[in-house]
Amino acid sequence: MARKAANASLWRYWPRLLLLIPFALVAWVPFYNRIEPALGGIPFFYWYQLAAILAGAAVVVGVYVLEGRKAFADDKRGRKASGKDRAGRGPGAAR
C-alpha cells in the first residue's frame, strides 16, 4: 500500500521528463554539423547550438513553473517539514 502511494506521489514529478529535451536537442551531432541554413552569415552549427541554450533554459523554467504550483500548495500546508523537498518522499515524510 505504501508503495502505491509512493508511486502516486512520483507522478507529481512528471514535468521532469521534459528535462530530456535539452539532451535530445544536442545528442545527434550529424544533424547540426552543417553550414546551411546559415543565419545572418552564421553557419547552422553555431546558431543552432546557441539557440539550444535558450531552448534548454526555457525547458528548465517550464519544469520549475509546472512543479512550482503544486509545491507551493504543499509548502503552505506543511511548513514544519522543510517544504517541497520533503513532500515528495512518500507518505510519512510529508505528513
Binding site: 521532469r16 530530456l20 535539452p22 539532451f23 536537442l25 544536442v26 547550438q49 541554450i53 534548454g56
Partner: peptide, 17 residues
C-alpha cells in the same frame, strides 16, 4: 572547441534534478 556549448546545455537539467 565549441563542445563547451552543448556541455552547458546539459549541465542545468542535471543541476535541477
Amino acid at each position: 572547441g565549441f563542445f563547451a556549448v552543448p556541455y552547458t546545455v546539459m549541465i542545468y537539467p542535471i543541476l535541477f534534478l
